[in-house]
Amino acid sequence: MDWGYFKELLMGGVVKGSIYALIALGYTMVYGIIELINFAHGEIYMIGAFTALIAAGVLTVAGFPAWSILILASAAAVVWSASYGYTVEKIAYRPLRGAPRLSPLISALGMSIFLQNYVLLAQTSNFMPFKNLFPEEGFLENISEVLSATEVIIIFTSAVVMILLSLFIKYSTTGKAMRATAQDRNMAMLVGVNVDKVISATFIIGSSLAAVGAVLIASNMGQINFFIGFIVGLKAFTAAVLGGIGSIPGAMLGGLVLGCTESFGTGYVSSDYEDVFAFTLLVLILIFRPAGLLGKSDIQKV
């Protein structure tokens, strides 16, 4: 057993899985509350990456220092993606709230196609270079063989964001309202929860997480185009289902499991079958645990 190699694959899987988890949270939160699979979520992620690219470009020309570019560009991406998420919900899903479940699903697919083509037309069909917004610091040199500074930041940021989110859901008023809405929307309305606001808040939070993920992954990979949301969205959705859609810890676990499965499958077998491993795992888990890893129906959903 080659532990060095194992460790490298594990770390690669954790990095990948953290990103999947960040994006999976958006799918799972929305599903938990309104039982909708928001297929436009991957596009929100892509828009976050483009916003960060444009903001970073403008700020660089304006001569801002590197750390402020990182913060401002990320903030711009979060705000912009969040407002897209909010607007998409208002335009495409809210009017269909009482409709049969398939209608908002189709609406979500339509939104996804619309946003993709909108960026294609408004921006470009080319791959755009994305400058790494994170400094490659010397203090991490001793582990650069295994993890680059950017990758460390990805794992660290994802962990912090997920902990904050869990605390938010557990202790804040909005978080409690979200849990209440997820458990029983009508009852929540009866006790005075503004369900529309709660749903909007869910979309805003989910979209912000996607934007954070976008800045992280675009910095790591160094390139973006209008189509990146599709595949990442698909994988993150898989992670959400894997962990038990509707469950927040499930999304995190699902992301990590999926990332590691892909990494080990590629490392020890063959990258020809990367997707085969991912989806075989999904099928197996759904056969033995139809609700996903942590998706017991009596567990809290949000």
Binding site: K16, I228, F230, I231, S263, T266, G267, S271, D275
Partner: peptide, 20 residues
Amino acid sequence: YEGITPGGMDYSAVVQKINR
């Protein structure tokens, strides 16, 4: 000798494999 998934988000596992 390997095929990679086009459009993948990350190829770190393949890169590690090349290294190894």
